[in-house]
Design a protein around this nucleic acid. Structure first.
Length: 506
RNA sequence: GCCAUUGUAGCUUAGCUGGUAGAGCACUUGAUUCGUAAUCAAGAGGCCGUGAGUUCGAAUCUCACCAAUGGCUCCA
């Protein structure tokens, strides 16, 4: 009780029949209020979340005061289940996870790759506008790089174990080196190996240090859709939202101290633009600070204080409410996270902006100031989408698989009434393709009813229906994203309007 | 990783207390050429997650492993 409830803080006790519960509450005054209930699942958990203790059975259910409220909730949950990205990902052929490839490793299929590419193009266009430089770095790096960055000791449990060169391995085997000895000698830096990169920052930092830098070069903004690998416990892995290999829309901004506020703000504005375009307005802002257990973090306390204050100031200038949460910081610095809620109420951390005084120190980064002296830059880490995998997973659910036209894997599906209309359909397809529209065509011998049923299921932005009427007048009839039907639009007009819709990303 | 549940064709699934598999959709072929959410018919497709064990005999029972789902813990 002492460590759960702080000194002087209030506590409450609830009673229901013979059951007495010490709980923050609130509880309902009486279970008589919960007339309608349904048990939904059972699971286990541990007393005080300690896996070494015996497990307890937990029973989950829904209860409501009225039958209608319960039924409404059930309907809502059924609708939410239909939007599950794991289900839609399979039905709409957006991605595949293969047992033979491995748990938590996403295979992007052609349709899903289109969505990802469109998103990447979208963000890249904003980065160019904001003066970012695109870079590419490899997927592995020497262990020594991560010893310097601090990832190796501080982030070890989240990493795949190091790769050791073949010759070195056989030499160590000849010497009778045991696995635990190997591991110890790697920890002590006697043996080097390569690590699958868990983060992109060390590589980007080495690009910074590859040249002498002047204050005139700053801010230097290095961006990469960088793929990283993290060892997640098998039970954590889920669909696209929690995986072992993922691509961050990453960038590292090398700035002077007085550029921090402005650059952090620039990052946050980018996040807001992106969320705004995609209609994601159910998100909250979290300022992640370090907690009392200082062994989890690298760097000196006064640097942390400065960085935490910078994050607070930036969040405050946003004009949206934010929470400060101790223990949510990265191991090298505090951060501002954008947390979105999915259709079933789960929260996902997507975009993140982190202020880092520590890595510049560890890598001895410098720039020459106007005074001719060497100064230490500050690094801002930022990933407005978080990772392409998680972001696409959340987006699939956000849109229920019905992507806006610019993101839609196939933007127009052409359906013919009969084989008489194939020639005209070909013309329509050519016109759309030349306008850069992604088209699919069904000239098969199914009835139009069947074709509509089949193609609607794939959720294209537009369904075009072509028959005698359209072929003889050079028009199209279509159902747009709202599935309202519009008939007899001149082909050229339709092409122009869909093209405008796509290029404006509306 | 821990606890629980689950694993039958590309998808959704039937298969009772053990006697080596059925269906719908999708697919292929043929017929049909059709105006708004399933045209008709035929065909093909399964070592029942993997490996052991019990048994005369295992999709079915036992064990181990793999994977998924729901939680716990952790995270982008």
């Amino acid at each position: 009780m002492d460590d759960k409830i702080g000194e002087g803080a209030g506590s409450s006790v609830y009673r229901q029949g013979d059951f007495v519960d010490l709980c923050r509450g609130p509880h309902v005054p009486t279970t008589a209020m919960l007339r309608w209930f349904k048990l939904t699942s059972t699971s286990t958990c541990y007393w005080k979340a300690d896996a070494s203790r015996e497990s307890l059975v937990r029973i989950y259910g829904w209860c409501f005061a009225t039958k209608e409220a319960l039924q409404n909730h059930e309907t809502l949950m059924r609708e939410a289940a239909k939007r599950d990205h794991r289900k839609l990902g399979k039905d709409l052929q957006l991605f595949h996870i293969d047992e033979m490839v491995g748990q938590g490793l996403i295979l992007w299929t052609p349709r899903g790759s289109i969505v990802r590419n469109e998103l990447q193009d979208f963000i890249s266009s904003h980065l160019r506008r904001q003066g970012y430089n695109q870079v590419y770095t490899p997927h592995i790096g020497k262990l020594d790089l991560y010893r310097t960055s601090g990832h190796y000791p501080y982030y070890q449990e989240s990493q795949y174990p190091p790769l050791v060169e073949r010759d070195l391995m056989s030499k160590l085997a000849d010497e009778g080196c045991s696995c635990s000895e190997l591991s110890n000698r790697m920890d002590e830096g006697e043996i080097d190996g390569y690590l699958l990169k868990p983060m992109n920052c060390p590589h980007h930092i080495r690009i910074y240090s590859s040249q002498p830098r002047s204050y005139r070069d700053l801010p230097l903004r290095l961006a990469e859709f960088g793929t990283v690998y993290r060892w997640e416990q098998s039970g954590e892995i889920s669909g696209m939202t929690r995986v072992r290999g993922f691509t961050q829309d990453d960038a590292h901004l090398f700035v002077t101290e007085d550029q921090i506020a402005q650059e952090v703000l620039g990052c946050i504005e980018l996040v807001q633009v992106i969320f705004g375009t995609l209609g994601m307005d159910d998100y909250r802002v979290r300022v992640g600070l370090r907690d009392a257990d200082s062994s989890k973090y690298v760097g000196e306390s006064e640097k942390w204080d400065k960085a935490e204050q910078a994050c607070r100031d930036a969040a405050a200038s946003l004009g949206v409410p934010f929470t400060e949460e101790p223990g949510e910081a990265a191991f090298y610095g505090p951060k501002i996270d954008f947390v979105v809620r999915d259709v079933i109420g789960r929260e996902w951390q997507l975009g993140t902006v982190q202020v880092d005084y520590n890595l510049p120190e560890r890598f001895d980064l410098t720039y020459v100031g106007a005074d001719g002296e060497k100064h230490r830059p500050v690094v801002i880490h930022r990933a407005p989408f978080g990772s392409m995998e998680r972001f696409c997973g959340v987006l699939i659910e956000h849109f229920g698989g019905m992507f806006p036209t610019w993101l839609s894997p196939t933007q127009a599906h052409i359906l013919t009434i009969s084989e008489k209309h194939i020639d005209y359909a070909d013309q329509v397809r050519t016109a759309l393709r030349e306008a850069g529209v992604r088209v699919e065509m069904d000239t098969g011998d199914d009835t139009i009813g069947k074709k509509l049923r089949t193609h609607r299921a794939m959720r294209p932005a537009y369904l075009l229906i072509l028959g005698d009427e359209e072929a003889s007048n050079g028009t199209v009839s279509y159902m747009g994203p709202d599935r309202e039907q519009i008939n007899g639009v001149a082909l050229a007009d339709f092409v122009a309007s869909i093209q405008a819709e796509i290029s404006s990303r509306s």
